[in-house]
Amino acid sequence: MEDFEPTIIAFVCNWCTYTAADLAGTSRQSYPTNVRLIRVMCTGMVDPKYIIKAFLEGADAVLVSGCHPGDCHYINGNYKARRRMKLLKAILPQYGFDEKRLKLTWIGASDGIQFARTIRDMVSEIKELGPNEAKHAAVV
């Protein structure tokens, strides 16, 4: 398992976490190469389908990250996202997609360090957990 480098898909909101991820880049806060950013306007835009798709395609973890409560550019999209995450966390673990593989965080525009740290922590946690089995399953 030594060589296992997890793939993390991060759905980040255009306003807060995307800025933080950019900031982590410009302030040379190096973070692991495992993360693949997908920018969305709002975490409230993250359709459960996207997350299911990511896992079935073999993503080892999915991060959804947006503005802090009260800070959503679109007023309350992050609260709705939280409910969708709650829903998925009730479904996916039953099929062997460990709950640890799916995370929701609030990361503000200035939290570049926190973004980098979140990714680092996720990588080490997922390394411990091992690869997502669906990575090699011949199904989607």
């Binding site: 459960p48 389908k49 299911i52 079935l56 073999g58 829903l87 399953a137 011949a138 199904v139």
Partner: peptide, 20 residues
């Protein structure tokens, strides 16, 4: 990517999405 893939595709995807 996976070496082989079941056809038709999107079967498991469909059922899990339907649950969501």
């Amino acid at each position: 990517r996976k070496g082989k893939i079941r056809m038709p595709t999107d079967t498991v995807f469909y059922h899990i999405t339907r649950m969501a």
